[in-house]
C-alpha cells in the first residue's frame, strides 16, 4: 500500500497536480496556526463557537459560501446582530485587517476544509482584490 501511495505521489508530482495538492495542504497547515492564534478563543478548538455569542463554523453555510463575503467578514469584522443559519450571536467580531493576505487566505482555506466543511481554497490574490474594494 505504501508503495502504491508513493507511486501515486510520483505520478501526481509529474503531472503538476501535486503542486496544487501540496500547496493546499501547506495552506491548510498554515491556516490552522493562524486560526489558533487569532480565532480559537471565540470560535473554539472544535469550531463549535459559543452558543448565543460566537457563531459556530461547523458545517456552516457562510463558511462554505460566497468567498468575497467571507473575506470581507474577516477584514471588516462585525458589530451587527445578524442571523447565521437561523440563530443570533451577540458578540462583536473584531476586524482582522492587520493579518496579511496570505494569512487570511490560509485561515479561510483551513476552515473551508475543516469542521465538516468542504469548499474551494481561497488565494491571497482573492483577499487582496477584496481588500481594495470598499464596503
Amino acid at each position: 500500500m505504501k508503495k502504491i501511495t508513493s507511486c501515486l505521489w510520483l505520478i501526481l508530482l509529474y503531472n503538476g497536480n501535486a503542486y496544487t495538492q501540496t500547496s493546499l495542504a501547506a495552506s491548510i497547515a498554515n491556516g490552522k496556526k493562524v486560526y489558533q492564534k487569532n480565532c480559537l478563543t471565540c470560535h473554539q478548538a472544535n469550531g463549535g463557537g459559543v452558543p448565543k455569542m460566537n457563531p459556530p463554523l461547523i458545517h456552516a453555510s457562510f463558511v462554505m459560501g460566497n468567498k468575497k463575503k467571507l473575506i470581507q467578514w474577516v477584514l471588516l469584522g462585525s458589530t451587527e446582530k445578524v442571523p447565521i443559519d437561523g440563530k443570533y450571536y451577540s458578540n462583536n467580531m473584531p476586524a482582522q485587517a492587520t493579518l496579511k493576505d496570505k494569512e487570511i487566505a490560509d485561515v479561510l482555506t483551513y476552515i473551508r476544509n475543516n469542521f465538516k466543511n468542504k469548499a474551494s481554497a481561497i488565494t491571497p490574490e482573492e483577499v487582496k482584490s477584496t481588500r481594495v474594494v470598499k464596503k
Partner: peptide, 10 residues
C-alpha cells in the same frame, strides 16, 4: 471538555 457547545446543560 474544551468547548461550550459540548455542554449538555448550562
Amino acid at each position: 471538555f474544551m468547548s461550550p457547545n459540548e455542554a449538555k446543560h448550562r
